[in-house]
Design a protein around this nucleic acid. Structure first.
Ligand code: MN
Ligand code: MN
Ligand code: ZN
Ligand code: ZN
Lengths: 156, 156
DNA sequence: CTCATAAACGATACAATGTATCACTTTGTA
DNA sequence: TACAAAGTGATACATTGTATCGTTTATGAG
């Protein structure tokens, strides 16, 4: 009964995506054209892997217009290939979605992003939802921590 | 061992606050001055109770400068008296923090906000955290749903 | 391989949500 | 009452996007 989690929350999804690693192919399968710009942006995101901000991508790809970078990210979000995570300071990072439903950890010092999955918490959330008025369509969750590197860092 | 949750995540806290209902008194106790503007803003927030956006408050209080509205909200957030919640559309709402640690539900149709608390999920999160490298300082979590009113609404 | 067309693009303007600055006002206190 | 510190408002600026619109490009029908 995991299927309820497949329903995407437009901006904040943590939904599964097809296990293919070729994002371009996925976009093409959905009817989108393969353009130089999309190849460039997707290529960079796949190489990064780690979290990134939209502005960061725009700066590193001066050949691609800013609007197009945002448009492409929006497209990938809608297609469930990216997760958008709110940092505690108010900014946002994007990160490649893995195949399975998951959540993220964020270091409040350095912003490093990690992933985790835990079936118990999912089961409990499902239970909470079934006791609730209305129809659950999704959830989001982040753990904030001070990462090991920051704990071991030479103070402030 | 609930104390770890008292550590505030600057923008996103869901932390407990003193059970007094007089927010002004709390601010004064922390050394802040009691000004006309703060009384006005706090008064309105206490009357509202429901979620609100910063801009909404600014518009309804033309006697108080926009910057001051934002400053006061920031102050109340820092003091743990407000929760800031990200809506799935990218906007933010603020809502009065209750005394106890809790989380929110958001209707993806109408934006209505609800609250819930569940000790099991908290216990599980604590367990997850203790198995994790680094030191957990907090978490956030929202359930997205279609509220009963929206389910019963006359279609689109 | 054309070529027409829909899709996508870049430049730019605009919008929303805050934050920084700074001259001025108010508050709390002695 | 007077003073210093805290707070305020107007305004400028910053960030993170979205809308517009004239131009370019990808695609696929012929
Ligand atoms: Mn989950
Ligand atoms: Mn919790
Ligand atoms: Zn760190
Ligand atoms: Zn609703």
């Amino acid at each position: 009964m995991f299927s309820s989690y497949r329903l995407l929350i437009p901006n904040f999804n943590t939904a599964p995506r097809p296990p293919s690693s070729d994002l371009l192919a996925i976009l093409e399968d959905q009817g989108y054209r393969s353009t130089y710009q999309r190849r460039t942006v997707v290529g960079m995101l796949e190489r990064k892997g780690d979290g990134f901000t939209a502005e960061e991508v725009a700066e590193e790809l001066p050949k691609v217009g800013r609007a197009t970078v945002y448009r492409t990210i929006k497209l990938l979000l809608k297609a469930g290939m990216l997760c958008k995570l709110p940092l505690p300071n108010g900014a946002h990072k994007y990160i490649m979605a893995r195949a399975e439903h998951h959540h993220h950890t964020v270091c409040v010092r350095c912003g490093a992003v990690g992933e985790f999955r835990n079936s118990t918490v999912e089961r409990v959330l499902r239970a909470i939802g079934s006791d609730m008025p209305g129809e659950i369509v999704g959830h989001r969750m982040e753990l904030y921590l001070i990462c090991r590197d920051c704990l071991n860092a030479p103070a402030e």
